[in-house]
Computed example of a mutant assay.
Amino acid sequence: MIRLTTQYTPAGTSYLVTGQGRPVVLIHGVGLNKHMWGGQIVGLAPHFQVIAYDMLGHGDSPRPDANGGLEAYAEQLRELLAHLNIASATVVGFSMGGLVARAFALEYPEHLDALVVLNSVFNRSPEQRARVIDRTRQAAEHGPDANAEEALSRWFSREYQAANPAQVAAIRQTLASNDPQGYLTTYELFATQDMYRADDLHSIQVPALIATGELDPGSTPQMAQQLAERMPRARHAVLPEQRHMMPVESPRLVNQLLLDFFQQANSLCNPAKGVLA
C-alpha cells in the first residue's frame, strides 16, 4: 500500500505526488477528490511520477471564483506544475476533470505532453442537457448530495455496489461533505461547458486518448468518438460493460488502457530499454 502525505502549493491546491519518471497528472470528477485515483496511483507509480490533486472547490483546495470559468481550473493546474518545477506533463482528466484537461490543453499547450479524457462529456443532446441542468437546480436547492442515490446508480454497476458497500458509502460521504458553493460553481460548469471552445479543439496537437464505458449513460461512446474526431492525434476507446466510475470499479482495466496509450506516445517511452520511462 502506498501511503502519501497531502501537500499544498502556495495558492493552496492540495495534492499528492509519488513515483519517478515522466509526470502524469490525474484530475478527478465533480463532487469527488484526489483520493478517487487510488487504483491508478498504485498501477502507474512504478512507471511515472504520479500527481493527483483536488480541483477548486473540492477536497482541501480553495473555492473557485464564481466567475472564473474553466480557465480558472486550468490556471490551478498550471500553478501546480510550476510549484513542482514541471515543464510539461501528461494530463488525465475524468468526467469534469476531462473538461479541465481540455481547457488546460487549449490554454497552456506548451505544458502538455499527452492528453487523456476519461468518461467525459461533449455535445450533449437537448435531452441530456435538460437532465443535467435539472440536477444543477437540485444541487442549488438541496446541496451536493441532492441526487446522490441517482448518481451512484449511474456511476456503478449493481454488482459492484453489492460487493463493495463500504467503498460506495465512502464516495457518497465524499459527495455529501463537499463545500456547497464550491460544488455548485463546479457543477454549473460541468452542466454547461461540454462544448467549451469546441471549434479550437483541432489545435490540440499532442497524442490524445478519449475513452469511456460502454454503459456510461452521461458520457457516452458517441461523445467520446465525436470528441476524438475534433483532435488530429486523438483516438477513442470504449471499454465493454463499464459504467461511469470505471477508474474505481475496474482499475486494472483502466490502468492497462492508460499504460498501452502511454507506451504508444513516443515521448513517454524509453526506446533504449523498450519499457515505459
Results as ranks from 00 to 15, higher is better:
Leu84Phe: 06
Asp54Cys: 01
Val91Leu: 05
Asn85Met: 10
Met36Phe: 04
Gly93Gln: 01
Glu149Leu: 08
Asp216Gly: 01
Leu201His: 09
Val168Leu: 05
Asn164Gly: 00
His142Phe: 14
Gln264Ser: 14
Ser95Gln: 04
Arg3Ser: 11
Glu249Val: 00
Glu71Asn: 06
Ala89Asn: 04
Met246Ala: 11
His244Phe: 04
Val92Phe: 06
Glu214Phe: 03
Gln256Pro: 04
Glu150Thr: 11
Gln205Tyr: 00
Leu16His: 15
Val30Thr: 14
Met195Pro: 00
Pro165Asp: 07
Ala170Val: 06
Val100Asn: 05
Asn164Met: 05
Arg3Pro: 00
Gly39Arg: 04
Gln7Asp: 13
Gly68Trp: 08
Leu184Pro: 03
Arg102Glu: 05
Ala162Asp: 15
Ser120Glu: 12
Asn67Leu: 10
Gln205Cys: 05
Ala114Phe: 05
Ile204Lys: 02
Met96Ala: 02
Glu214Pro: 01
Tyr73Asp: 03
Gln7Lys: 13
Leu257Ile: 05
Val132Ile: 10
Leu106Met: 00
Tyr8Ile: 07
Leu253His: 11
Phe48Cys: 04
Glu241Lys: 15
Asp260Val: 02
Gly39Asn: 01
Val24Met: 05
Thr186Glu: 00
Ala101Leu: 05
Val30Asn: 13
Pro23Gln: 06
Ala211Glu: 14
Pro221Ile: 04
Pro247Asn: 08
Arg129Lys: 15
Thr174Arg: 07
Cys269Asn: 13
Leu152Ile: 10
Phe261Glu: 08
Gly218Trp: 08
Met36Tyr: 06
Thr18Trp: 03
Phe104Trp: 06
Val25His: 05
Leu115Trp: 12
Ala265Trp: 08
Thr212Tyr: 06
Val24Phe: 08
Met231Tyr: 07
Arg137Tyr: 11
Asp65Asn: 13
Thr174Asp: 06
Gln222Lys: 15
Glu110Lys: 14
Asp260Thr: 09
Ala151Arg: 15
Ser120Lys: 11
Phe261His: 09
Glu110Leu: 12
Arg137Glu: 15
Phe156Arg: 08
Phe262Tyr: 09
Gln256Phe: 04
Pro217Phe: 01
Pro46Ala: 02
Thr220His: 07
Ala45Thr: 13
Asn255Thr: 07
Gly31Thr: 08
Arg233His: 14
Pro207Val: 02
Asp199Ile: 00
Ala208Trp: 10
Gln263Ala: 15
Asn33Ile: 01
Arg230Tyr: 08
Thr212Pro: 04
Val132Leu: 00
Leu112Val: 04
Ser177Phe: 09
Thr220Arg: 05
Leu77Cys: 06
Gln256Thr: 13
Gln161Asp: 00
Gln138Ala: 06
Pro46Ser: 03
Phe156Leu: 06
Tyr160Lys: 10
Ile2Met: 13
